[in-house]
Amino acid sequence: MKIEPQHVVSLTYDLYVDQPDGTEALVESATEEQPLTFLFGVGQMLPKFEENLSALSTSDTYDFKLTAEDAYGEHDEEAVANLPLEMFQGADLPEVGAILPLQDNQGHHFQGQVVSVTEDSVIVDLNHPMAGQPLHFKGKILNVRPATSEELAHGHAHGPDGHHHH
């Protein structure tokens, strides 16, 4: 079956990023036992990732690269936040390199990596860990099926090969 919007897609992938020495390193994988399953065309995935898959069908393999711009954006030197130490009262101060779960005033969740800890604040880099990096995806389409009306209403895949509600 061909991938179309409002279809549930299960696929394997290996994600590679470029290393300083010119080689590629595998940073993430989804296997046939633990595939990535998502509702296509609702904005769950990177738009260019979906665009590259849009002509494929079940059992097709794929191999494509996304530029940093089409993936998680260029690394933004300005995307740092100074979190006042008061925020961490009663908790241990995070160490440099720690990933902090954060939330903005609109309730969006995101992560920041601690760059330094000063006397009065914790400085956090808000760039996505893969910002500034081209992403190289290789994998295989395992299954494509029309989404159920319930899945469409919820905006994500359900069932044994989908999203579980806890």
Rank of each mutant, 00 (worst) to 15 (best):
E28P: 05
G132C: 04
D21R: 00
G159D: 13
T23R: 15
P129M: 05
S59L: 12
P129Y: 01
L83M: 08
F137M: 02
E74H: 02
S121L: 02
S116A: 11
A71F: 03
H75N: 11
L15E: 07
S57K: 13
E50K: 08
Q44I: 12
L11K: 15
Q6L: 11
T37D: 10
T148C: 08
A30S: 13
A147D: 09
K48F: 12
H158T: 09
E24T: 14
L66N: 01
A30F: 10
V17F: 03
V96A: 13
G97K: 10
F88Q: 00
F110D: 00
D161N: 13
D125T: 09
G139Y: 06
F40Y: 12
K138S: 09
H166M: 02
T37Y: 09
Q19P: 02
F38L: 15
S116L: 11
N127G: 06
G162V: 05
K140Y: 08
E119M: 01
K65Q: 15
H166N: 02
D120W: 02
H158S: 06
N82W: 05
G112A: 09
V117T: 07
L66Y: 01
P101R: 12
G73E: 00
Y62M: 10
L56N: 05
H136A: 06
H156D: 04
E77S: 13
E33L: 14
L100P: 11
V27I: 12
E78R: 10
F137R: 01
T12S: 06
D92Q: 06
P101M: 08
A25W: 06
Q6R: 13
Q113P: 01
S54A: 11
A147H: 06
G155V: 07
P47H: 04
E119K: 06
D21Q: 01
D18S: 13
H164D: 07
E69D: 12
F40M: 01
G159V: 12
K2H: 09
T67Q: 02
A30P: 05
Q34G: 10
H136L: 09
D63W: 05
S149E: 14
G97N: 10
M1L: 13
Q103R: 15
S29K: 14
H7N: 10
Y62L: 11
P47K: 05
A131T: 00
Q89R: 00
M1E: 13
H109T: 14
N52M: 10
G97P: 12
V27W: 01
T118Y: 03
F40A: 06
H163V: 14
P160M: 14
I141D: 03
P160H: 14
L83I: 15
F49N: 07
F137Q: 01
G139F: 07
D76F: 05
S57L: 04
G43T: 07
A131N: 00
D70N: 11
D14P: 05
G73F: 00
F110R: 01
A153I: 05
P160S: 15
A153D: 09
F38R: 11
I3S: 07
A68R: 01
T31W: 02
M87D: 10
K138M: 12
F137I: 01
H109K: 13
V122G: 00
F64M: 03
I99D: 14
L102W: 03
T58N: 06
Q6N: 15
V114R: 03
V124K: 03
A81L: 13
N52E: 11
D92N: 09
K138R: 15
